[in-house]
Amino acid sequence: MMKTMSISVLGIIVGVVLVAILPPFLDGIARKVKARIQYRVGPPILQTYYDLQKLFGLPSLRPTENKWFRVAPYLALASAFSAAFLLPYGKWVPVKFSGDIVVFFYVLAMVSVAIIIGAFSTQNAHSNIGGHREMMMVLSVEPILGVALGIFAFKAGTLSLSAIPLKVPASFSTVLAYLLLIYAAYAESGFVPFDIAEAETEIAGGVLVEYSGRLLGVLEYAILAKRLVLLWLLSTFLTIPILRGIALTGVVGGIVVLAVQLILVLVAYPLIAALEATNARYRIDQAVALNTRIFLLSLVVLAVAAVGW
């Protein structure tokens, strides 16, 4: 019964490279896309790298002696990377222990947890408000995610990260489960209209307000990485069912899958940017209300899945 875990060196390399390089690049694309939509020239594609480079080069101010304040960004980043390591890249999974999706989401949620605790460690109401808004987002998105997993448990009979895309059948409820997953991932990523925790014009950056210099760089990087990880999960879930036949066959198959995953991510990010550009920010109570409504709807979907559709 006991399956030991495996560590794929190749996977780690691919993972590290992708997660280390891709997030700022994708952000750059998004900024460019947004700028075009807004009749602007926009910054260069590599602008986010420049920003991060500048931030990494600056010292940070320390508004509190609380250790959490300094530890939190690193923990957030490490959690985002750890979550990335649980995902398959092509046929390679960097760190595989039959990758339970619940574990994956929890590890990813640790990014938020770290940020929130960091935000609360300071005596600053803006940052505190940001922290508790972030928490409320987690609170309201979590059940939707839970329902999506429930549907997978019904339809695919497994909650293993790598097995769900292989086993999930095409059915009415799974399609809806995918939609729920996409919605949850989008909201969790904090894209507009869900950028409530940072809300620059309201609470001056919220969770980020006290951070500066390198710590801010690490934190922003962690947030970008988390977005990529969620997107990668979605792209995996879309790619592998389509490429089931070749997904696990040989190196070539692996590379093909990896390429498709990557392309999907690259295509999806500008779409997200467009979505961001055309939306205003929700107020937290409105976001929670929306999420609650979707959760209640999703329960119907779960019932549908239980019935067998």
């Binding site: 947004k34 939509i37 807004q38 009749y39 602007r40 507009v192 209209p193 950028d195 809300a199 014009t201 309201e202 550009a277 055309t278 939306n279 205003a280 920010r281």
Partner: peptide, 15 residues
């Protein structure tokens, strides 16, 4: 528009 995070509206109005 900018204050509610709707930057496209902001940019358009100013343009």
């Amino acid at each position: 528009c900018h204050l509610v995070g709707f930057d496209t509206g902001f940019m358009y109005a100013w343009r």
